[in-house]
Design a protein around this nucleic acid. Sequence first.
DNA 1: AATTAGCACTCTACTCAAATGAGTGCTAAC
DNA 2: GTTAGCACTCATTTGAGTAGAGTGCTAATT
Lengths: 349, 349
Amino acid sequence: MELDGRKLKILKAIIRNYLETGEPVGSRTLSKYTDLNLSSATIRNEMADLEELGYILQPHTSAGRIPSDKGYRLYVDDMMREKEQEVSGKEKEVENMKEFLIERVDKVELLLQQLAKQLAENTNYATMVTAPKYSTNKVKFIQLSRVEPGKLLVVVVIDGNIVRNTILDVEEELSDETLLHLNMMCNTSLNGLSINEINLGVIAKLKEQAGIHRAIVGSVLDAVAEAITVDNDLEIYTSGATNIFRYPELSDQEKARNLIGAFEHKELLTNLVQESLEGEGNQGIQVYIGSETPVQTMKDCSVVTATYELEEGVKGTIGIIGPKRMDYERVVNILKTLTTQLDNIYKKT
Amino acid sequence: MELDGRKLKILKAIIRNYLETGEPVGSRTLSKYTDLNLSSATIRNEMADLEELGYILQPHTSAGRIPSDKGYRLYVDDMMREKEQEVSGKEKEVENMKEFLIERVDKVELLLQQLAKQLAENTNYATMVTAPKYSTNKVKFIQLSRVEPGKLLVVVVIDGNIVRNTILDVEEELSDETLLHLNMMCNTSLNGLSINEINLGVIAKLKEQAGIHRAIVGSVLDAVAEAITVDNDLEIYTSGATNIFRYPELSDQEKARNLIGAFEHKELLTNLVQESLEGEGNQGIQVYIGSETPVQTMKDCSVVTATYELEEGVKGTIGIIGPKRMDYERVVNILKTLTTQLDNIYKKT
DNA sequence: AATTAGCACTCTACTCAAATGAGTGCTAAC
DNA sequence: GTTAGCACTCATTTGAGTAGAGTGCTAATT
């Protein structure tokens, strides 16, 4: 059996209707409210076929049909293909979001948290934003200072002016000159290097230069290593988890608990981020429908992720989590314009 | 009417039973399963009195009784009074928690997040932990460095070795000597001062010393001010929000949504923290029952908060949020031992 | 051969009444 | 003051009956 034009039309009509109402769609509804001009009986036959093909299913015998994951998939793919052509979308959607993004907050952390929140409020879905990840952190600047006797402050500035710091306990007392000297040494030896480039050779050379202070250099290197190591964890901001209560199909105890649990245990979301960064889809946008999701506890939802790239190799992910019947079109649009704008705003800097 | 000994006994029995089962308690149950040796009829009479006094109430005519907020209050106060005497509690409860606290993580942030998580897992309630708040932050050390041309890194170390940093854009190019000079100036003028002590006099003197670089000093002072300003916001870590689904009386859509919303919008929790820090109760432990809570959306819960104090004036709050029928005794015990241990661990440092 | 009308059938959701049972309040006896 | 006993209340459960939405199939129509 083939999926001819008419079947496709009917399928799309079913999906569109279901997206709107959230109720199973019956043959009579379609017959009346579409321009197909077919009787309900004919549509019933077609629907039986569509069900056999796996695009739709019945919650129970005497109910209408709802789209299956496979059905949604077809719909989304088709939609994405169309969008592709339509060069520039309607930018209005994110207009007010833009406004607040403009007045960039200092702390990236706060900005992203805010972004997640705004996005959740605008879409009525749950959202997730990861901090941009510098795939290759490079040391830009190192500063060692004595805070108080026995305490050494190590500040490391890395690409993108991210500042990390550690306080070390040191046994020996360092004179001002030694400190100055160590500072210079570290900067000349390490600046511009990434974690992989700081190899044994560099380390040995540095320790040699340090002479009697080699122990300290060791500690400092540890601190530097920690600072430039890309931490895979936790830098995920979420918002709007309670939005899932807007959708009855996600609101029962069991499902709500699972979902909200996933938002609480952010480590579960890392899979999602990972996968989303790897599989480059249409303009970095990826749609996971139901059980396609990499996060098991979200198998009753759909997830749309977008990758934004501040500069070469500096990527983050934005995700929107909603019911399978989410408004894919709108969500994809929002994410597209949003990522473009994020890029632009940061590139201006 | 008075609350005589027997009434009190019955009230306590009702509460204890209800804490266990979560079901309204009937007269027959009490008659059978307590050592009061009274018939159900007598107990019924007493219960009628207790209801009139406002300590218990009936969900509906033909149900047993459940404690009212006033009833719980009596119970908790009484319990706290008893605990007072019992000098040292059973410390075992937090034994495994201690274990992980011992291997202190560097980042306070992580530690507190972990603490919240562990606590939630151990108690099966929702938890909340705030970062210790230094009521009077003092500047301990300032370091200005040139990261790259036009960018000045300001690092401020404050009490408790908390490190804050800002990157400033500067117009003029600074020589190494100037930078060194500025560094010394800032440190000698500002070290040891709190936000209130950095007054116009200090500022004027500093600017005068700076001469042509007064503009920069202005920016630096702003950065310092930001660093030592106690930020009232957001430093709240939560965990175990999904635990509320364990308690049917909190699990319906409406309530669950409200509660989880409160955990998401952490700004709502600041009231709680505020109040808890101010009203010093029994060993810094405070119990809010039902509508006593400062956070409106939690009026169907009870909240137990504890204040911990790392050193003079450095305080944080731990909160446990559960159903009104939470195991107050256990929770209070855990919080007591936990705060003591937190103090000890940090004091060792 | 495709479409449609018609009808029997299925299944959910709702309503209603009756039965159940836990628990009370009150009265009269102890 | 305490208790036994009984009538009463009310939430919950159960089952029957009904309405309604929607289907699948067959036979008639185009």
